[in-house]
Write a protein that binds this DNA or RNA. Structure first.
Length: 99
DNA sequence: GGGTTGACGGTTA
DNA sequence: ATAACCGCCAACC
């Protein structure tokens, strides 16, 4: 059976701890599709509200959606002016390690 | 049923 | 260090 990417993606995204961030690529891998980072982001477009999409950023450590900066700061995640996450490497949460 | 889109990533200049 | 390019393929129109 073919699991819908979206659903899988949402599930993993919900697992991201508060104050941590993850990337599209990592999540894509986590659901078993290594090179489908785009689909992850694409799925986020219409994601339910219970999905912390603001914790999902691009692999470069910057926000794909600048609007989420406020949300992230609210969770103690510092965002630089250039849109990059401060200490992104430290805050990065790898779903693969959890699964 | 076919073509375009896309909240990306990695590689190459 | 930056910028541009190419590839990847499900979901949507």
């Amino acid at each position: 059976m073919i699991p819908l990417f979206k659903e899988q993606v949402y599930e993993v995204t919900k697992l991201i701890p508060k104050g941590r961030v993850s990337t599209y690529g990592a999540i894509a891998k986590a659901v078993g599709y290594p090179n489908h980072s785009r689909h992850v982001g694409n799925a986020m477009g219409g994601c339910p509200k219970d999905v912390p999409a603001h914790r999902v950023i691009s692999g470069s450590g910057k926000l794909s959606v600048p609007s989420f900066r406020e949300r992230l700061e609210k969770e103690d995640v510092l965002v630089q002016e250039n849109g990059k996450i401060k200490d992104f490497k430290k805050l990065f949460w790898n779903p693969l390690e959890e699964l």
